[in-house]
Amino acid sequence: MDDASLLIDQRSASLAAAGEDVRAWASGRRVFVSSLITDMPDERAAVRAAIESVGATAVMFEDLGAQDISAEQAYLSGVRSSEVYVGMWGSRYGVRMPDGYSATHAEFLEAERNGLRLCLFVNGETGGEMDGAQRDLIQGARNLYTTSPWTDPEDLGRRVRRRLEELAAEELAPWVRVGRTLFRAREITNDGRTISLTAAVRSDAVHAELVRLRDSRAGGVPFASPHTALPVQISGLSTTTVSTIGHEERLTLVAQDQRSSNLRASTINGISADEVGRRALSDGLFGTSLLGQQMGWMTRPIDPLAPLRGLGLDDSVLRPVARLLFAERLITDQAATRVDSFALGPSHQGARRLRATWTPPQVYANEPDPAPVSIDGTVTGL
């Protein structure tokens, strides 16, 4: 399949989740609220109300109660037990703890390490009185994440609620790949043999390509979802045309044998396979030269994002599609069982910071869990 001619349903990025679906997504979900407590009591109250209005649970330091552990351990445990992090950063950095970080900075780093979805809000930059350490924290975060301002507590509450609704829509309608088409699915059911999915496709080109794949009965069609990558055959496609720009698609895909060994080399020329894969990705994505000559013909640079370079995609499309293609390549190559985190920063003069962590597969069943592997560098052309 020619990745260079991917067909991406860019208009599906605007899909919003219904209110009842947002509440179903939020039910049981914990949202950690991070800020200087004494500086932002009204903001914290507004954010708590916004979180609870969608049905999620606000995790706040003032609610943790008496515990027989240190305050630092208590709030970092609160971060680790949450799925979403809301950080409100004002002009003050806060008191440094023994490790040199303020509490809010440590909470942010813990949220990053544990792969929480991040919602970052900044206020107080225009007055010229922001602490230097606070400015460094904010500028460092902006290398990877987009921050939002706020004007007053009510405005902040609205922004937090809207961001949670956006996160719900992303997870309730994940991006998938079928052949050379990429679009958002409303529902995916996978029993290990048959994959059924529904989607609202707004691109006529994507719809036409799905029809072609169905009618051609082609096998070995690449399929990828956030956690799966395998070849399939389209055994069924039914379409309800709901408007001149929309198609309700129902696809049935049959998984095919991958014909590749589940065993992979543990070392290549004395270097672990996980390290070789990390170097190959770094060379392909960032243009480094980590493979060197010692690998010879056995390995080459790997660039899962090559099909996206030069397309000028909007960030709302680029980020989830880039993560999908990255995960697909690692899972297909048996280099990862899952991608734990993937952050693609905003564009700065044509360059973006990319940081990703994944878990390699076990070579032998009785060995310890493999250590996560990470890359961090700058990509261009996206």
Rank of each mutant, 00 (worst) to 15 (best):
D131G: 09
G132N: 14
D136Q: 15
L137N: 11
I138W: 10
I138H: 09
Q139E: 15
A141W: 07
N143L: 12
L144Q: 10
L144T: 10
Y145H: 15
Y145K: 13
T146F: 12
T147Y: 02
P149D: 13
W150P: 02
W150I: 02
T151K: 08
T151Y: 07
P153Q: 12
E154Y: 05
E154R: 04
E154Q: 09
D155K: 01
G157Y: 10
G157I: 05
G157M: 07
R158C: 02
R158Y: 06
R159H: 09
V160L: 06
V160Y: 09
V160A: 04
L167T: 00
A168I: 02
A169S: 15
E170D: 15
E171P: 02
L172W: 10
L172E: 10
A173S: 13
A173G: 00
R177Q: 15
R177K: 12
R177S: 11
V178L: 11
V178K: 01
R180K: 12
T181L: 04
F183H: 04
R184Q: 08
R186C: 01
R186W: 09
I188P: 04
I188N: 02
T189M: 08
D191H: 07
D191R: 06
R193Q: 14
T194A: 08
T194I: 14
I195T: 05
S196G: 13
L197R: 08
T198H: 04
T198E: 04
A199V: 03
A200S: 11
V201N: 03
V201M: 06
R202N: 05
S203T: 05
S203M: 11
S203L: 12
S203R: 10
D204G: 07
D204E: 14
D204M: 11
A205W: 00
H207C: 10
A208L: 12
A208V: 03
E209C: 03
E209K: 04
E209S: 08
L210S: 01
R212E: 12
R212N: 09
R212M: 05
L213D: 04
L213M: 06
L213T: 00
R214D: 04
R214T: 04
R214K: 13
S216P: 02
S216F: 01
A218L: 11
G220N: 09
V221G: 11
P222N: 06
P222V: 02
P222L: 05
F223S: 07
A224R: 02
A224W: 03
P226Q: 06
P226E: 08
P226M: 06
T228N: 09
T228F: 09
T228D: 15
A229I: 01
A229D: 07
L230I: 07
L230F: 08
P231R: 01
P231D: 13
V232T: 03
V232E: 09
I234L: 15
G236L: 06
L237M: 07
L237E: 07
S238T: 15
T241E: 15
T241M: 12
T241P: 05
V242D: 13
V242S: 15
G246L: 13
G246F: 00
G246R: 12
E249T: 05
E249P: 00
E249Q: 14
L251D: 06
L251F: 07
T252H: 05
T252P: 03
L253A: 11
A255N: 00
A255S: 13
Q256C: 08
D257C: 00
D257A: 14
S260R: 15
S260P: 00
L263Y: 13
L263R: 14
L263M: 12
L263F: 13
A265K: 12
A265E: 14
S266W: 02
S266P: 00
T267M: 03
T267A: 06
